[in-house]
């Protein structure tokens, strides 16, 4: 029979996994509605980063703010363009809490349905698209709360509804923004049909390799 302390540690680990899953799912709900300030507030103040598709790496809390507020939110100075739809399911989390209980990693699918402009991030004709990609994220626990440390979304496809990923793997993805540039170049960008597979952070559950 486990001692009270041992039981407490095991329950704490279960709670940490639940909290991180909740954090990532809430991130998804905020993204659906373009609530970029609320997303910035989900990141730690201590040296966070964000990298999505081929937009480059944005570093530090200021970089995270520039990415979500200035780039994706266009400075949040005017309402989001009518007709934009963003539904990005956060699916199948595999969350690994490190033994010290202070940091964690998580892998997810981001799969969804969008209506977005294809010529640039904010202008041009709206197209309806299917999108899929993989997250490999880092989390950190500060003052009893789990926060996002590093977020990395690797795009697999963003295809027009009418075409499918075989015919048109990616539309509406145009590299680093010249006006709100990233702090470092894109590390990996290899959508379909690339043979690249995003490395898994977790060890094999049986063999431990």
């Amino acid at each position: 029979m486990a001692t009270l302390e041992e039981l407490q540690a095991r329950i704490q680990r279960l709670e940490d996994i639940k909290e991180i899953e909740r954090l990532q799912k809430i991130y998804g709900y905020y993204q659906d509605y373009g609530e970029w300030q609320k997303i910035v507030d989900l990141f730690t103040d201590n040296d966070p980063s964000v990298e999505e598709a081929d937009r480059g790496v944005y570093k530090g809390k200021e970089g995270v703010r520039r990415y979500y507020i200035d780039l994706l939110g266009q400075g949040m100075k005017k309402p989001r363009r009518p007709g934009i739809l963003s539904i990005l399911f956060q699916l199948q989390g595999v969350v690994t809490v490190n033994p010290d209980g202070k940091t964690a990693k998580g892998r997810w699918y981001g799969f969804g349905m969008e209506a977005k402009p294809i010529a640039s991030l904010h202008e041009g004709e709206l197209r309806q698209t299917w999108i899929n990609g993989v997250y490999e994220n880092d989390y950190v626990k500060e003052d009893g709360k789990w926060k996002i440390k590093n977020l990395h979304f690797y795009l697999t496809f963003r295809t027009p509804y009418e075409d499918g990923w075989l015919k048109t793997p990616v539309v509406g993805q145009n590299g680093p923004d010249p006006n709100i540039p990233p702090d470092a170049p894109t590390t990996v960008y290899a959508p379909y049909p690339s043979p690249y597979r995003v490395p898994v952070h977790f060890k094999h559950p049986i063999t431990g390799v």
């Binding site: 909290e19 909740r22 954090l23 809430i26 709900y29 509605y33 609320k38 507030d41 989900l42 309402p79 989001r80 009518p82 007709g83 739809l85 209506a115 709360k145 789990w146 926060k147």
Partner: peptide, 18 residues
């Protein structure tokens, strides 16, 4: 869609509590 309706969340912000 495409109203842009925001269906309110039942949860508070995980960090700010908003």
């Amino acid at each position: 869609y495409p109203s842009g309706y925001h269906f309110p969340y039942s949860f508070p912000h995980p960090i700010t509590g908003e």
